[in-house]
């Protein structure tokens, strides 16, 4: 019985350490939904951006739908605790005044079509930004695991 109590106490201590550790790092935990959605959006964005040598009006509906998808995810990221960095990254990607995804669509709309060389180069830039977001989400998983391993090895 005493042995069981001791085990239970140890378990509770580990759990409380885990909670303290998670809140003190001030980084949200890895989120499978965020990872999956960001990856899906990246693939859709790449496909759509590749069409930018043809007139914007032909793809306006798809662009609007993609931006709506992104808006929903950004809202989800905004409300997660300790998730300021991911939220700030998404804000940059979707800011029409910056020079990433939303600005790409804005330019496509303004210019009607984009030149092949510019399309290829700007697409790479936007995809690099998506990769940074995805890698950052994966790093959260590593951080969570490292925190857990630290506790176990203490």
């Amino acid at each position: 019985m005493n042995h069981l109590k001791l085990k239970l106490t140890a378990f509770l201590i580990i759990i409380s350490f885990l909670f303290t550790s998670c809140s003190s790092t001030k980084t949200a935990l890895y989120d499978q939904y965020s990872y999956q959605k960001t990856t899906e959006i990246k693939v859709e964005a790449e496909k759509l951006m590749s069409e930018a040598t043809s007139p914007y009006v032909l793809h306006q509906k798809e662009v609007t739908m993609l931006l709506l998808e992104i808006e929903k995810l950004v809202e989800y990221e905004k409300n997660k605790p300790n998730n300021e960095i991911t939220f700030a990254m998404w804000k940059m990607l979707t800011d029409k005044e910056k020079n990433l995804l939303a600005a790409f669509f804005k330019r496509w709309e303004t210019k009607e079509t984009l030149s092949p060389a510019f399309l290829e180069e700007s697409k790479k830039q936007v995809l690099d930004a998506f990769d940074l977001l995805i890698q950052y989400e994966i790093k959260k998983d590593k951080k969570s695991k490292d925190a857990l391993l630290d506790l176990i090895n203490q």
């Binding site: 910056k98 990433l100 600005a103 830039q125 930004a129």
Partner: peptide, 11 residues
């Protein structure tokens, strides 16, 4: 545009 996007990426 590309230079600005690169600066955004570095940020």
């Amino acid at each position: 545009w590309l230079l600005k996007s690169q600066l955004d990426l570095v940020s």
